[in-house]
Design a protein around this nucleic acid. Structure first.
Lengths: 155, 155
DNA sequence: TTTATTTCTTAATATAGTTTAAGGGTGGGT
DNA sequence: ACCCACCCTTAAACTATATTAAGAAATAAA
């Protein structure tokens, strides 16, 4: 899914890994979040407002997914009232995840943020290329290298 | 509402202004979002997981509010199925707001973030003390001063 | 009004993180 | 086997922002 288009699907990830990212004024990409097995991924904002998205969603591993289209979901909402509750809970959890991500960003130094990342995504840290992690942390890959070097020296 | 306690209320702001903030390792406060008239404010994470919050919510103006308590809301959910949908939409909007805040943070320089803030909260920018805005932007009040000076010089 | 208290501004110095550039490793394609 | 593309590391020079400190301005208190 690309920025500038409307996000039409809630995507459930059966296997693999995705990233959701934005692009800044200078053309640099910033990873907002990752999604792996058993997670949902969608630009909830664009999906519901039907406004063009400012985000991109992209597979970073070969992946297997299930998708629910917008119209279909709304029809399902009408026929199965319980779905409102189910998706309310999904969104609540997505909200919490995003809020934690913002809180994590408060950790002033990039080193602390990196250590946080390692705790939060022990699986992903081995799977993802360095550049993706740096983009998530809001630093350059070069600086991530330096952080790792400093950490291993000090240990 | 203070960090370490469980967030027990969805709060609707009739009049006034609130801020929601976290505190980092060094004791510095970081404003996550503001809420003014006709807005809801709550630590949705803590409210639903019933885990102690890492956030604080505080009035920064004399305010009038309405509050719904957790238990009551759950009872209402059971009796009024439509509420699931209504609160799903509220949370969707909160999610979008939070996501925009994160996207805004991508703007590499603090100056761009400040200009963004001015657009997004034209009302608040006059109402809030400098320190609160700086805390929202993730910079020091001193640096905000500098940004303003540079902007007015260049204009 | 005067004093006290908090907030804003300015400027000098210090630092976390970027940019640029170069060299080395690794896997895929032909 | 080779080449090509991509990723990782290192280091030097540079820049955005923090820190510290001091004075000006504004607000509240006496």
């Amino acid at each position: 899914m690309s920025e500038g288009t409307i996000c039409r699907y809630y995507t459930f990830i059966v296997a693999g890994c995705f990233r959701m990212y934005g692009v800044d004024d200078k053309g640099y990409e910033h990873n907002l979040q990752f999604g792996a097995e058993n997670d949902w991924i969608a630009d909830i904002g664009s999906f519901h407002t039907r406004q063009p998205s400012r985000l991109n969603i992209q597979a970073i591993e070969d992946s297997t997914i299930l998708q629910v289209e917008q119209q279909d979901l709304y029809i399902l909402y009408q026929n199965i009232p319980k779905l409102d509750r189910i998706f309310k809970v999904i969104i609540e959890n997505k909200y919490i995840e995003l809020q934690n991500r913002v809180l994590q960003n408060f950790s002033s130094t990039a080193e602390l943020r990196y250590l946080n990342f390692l705790e939060q995504y022990p699986t992903l840290s081995g799977r993802l290329p360095n550049t993706q992690i740096a983009s998530y942390l809001g630093i350059t890959p070069e600086f991530l290298s330096k952080i790792r070097k400093d950490l291993s020296k000090r240990k």
